[in-house]
């Protein structure tokens, strides 16, 4: 990403960001509420009001200057290999858990191997195993989040964007979820996890980027290092 700015209407949320994600890397994106983590993820998949600068993905330009057509390119970007687990959960409440997961396997290749992919995800999130035929709207918050993240993992993607996996979950559940996320074998795929809770990520990711007022602070891991985890709870 080079010189990327974006925002909504007359508001500029992201201010000229530059950064690169390497294949196979697991990156934590930390920052307080309202400092642009979600906007950054939305920018990558073209869901902000406008954007400027250049976003290159595997040699392809997917960003560029744009001032209208919110979300119009999103399906194309997603199909080019960026899977996204949005903030909160954008699951399909009337579909069963099984169908929700299958809907993540959008590309032709992923659709054909959706059974194996699903089994791999059930290894990561065992609680979903007994819920497969249940409609997703009836699940608990933690299970819904598992479905949402699992759906993103179903895709045959090169970059997984996970937005605030711990939001609104009990500490114990969110630790389990992030643990699972960090254990998954992504092959050469990369993952970006946005999170407010730094101790949840520290030590589990390859790199931690800090975000403050729409600007990136590289490797803030140590700066926050002396804050005792209890203070974050």
């Amino acid at each position: 990403m080079r010189e990327v700015s974006s925002g909504y209407g007359t508001m500029r949320v992201i201010h000229g960001l530059n950064f690169t994600i390497d294949p196979g890397e697991r990156i934590g994106l930390v920052g307080l509420n309202g400092h642009g983590k979600t906007t950054l993820i939305s920018t990558i998949v073209g869901m902000t009001g406008w954007q400027d600068g250049s976003i290159e993905f595997m040699g392809q330009q997917i960003g560029g200057r744009r001032s209208h057509g919110v979300g119009r390119n999103t399906p194309k970007i997603v199909r080019s290999g960026i899977a996204i687990a949005p903030q909160g959960d954008a699951i399909f409440p009337g579909l069963t858990v099984e169908e929700n997961l299958a809907s993540g396997a959008y590309t032709e290749g992923a659709w054909k191997t959706r059974k194996q992919r699903r089994d791999a995800i059930l290894e990561v999130f065992p609680p979903l195993r007994t819920r497969l035929k249940q409609s997703a709207g009836t699940l608990s918050g933690g299970e819904r989040r598992m479905v949402s993240v699992g759906r993103a993992l179903m895709a045959d993607a090169k970059l997984y964007l996970v937005d605030e996996p711990s939001l609104g979950l009990a500490p114990k559940i969110s630790i389990g979820l992030v643990d699972a996320l960090c254990k998954i074998d992504l092959g050469d795929g990369a993952m970006l996890i946005a999170e407010q809770n730094l101790p949840l990520l520290s030590g589990r990711c390859d790199r931690i980027l800090g975000m403050h007022a729409g600007e990136l602070k590289e490797d803030v891991g140590e700066a926050f290092g002396d804050i005792p985890p209890a203070a974050e709870m």
């Binding site: 999103t74 399906p75 194309k76 997603v78 996204i84 954008a90 399909f92 809907s103 959008y106 895709a155």
Partner: peptide
């Protein structure tokens, strides 16, 4: 069910 969510999993 959810047009926005569908957009995010690649459904045009």
């Amino acid at each position: 069910m959810n047009p926005l969510g569908a957009n995010m999993v690649g459904v045009s």
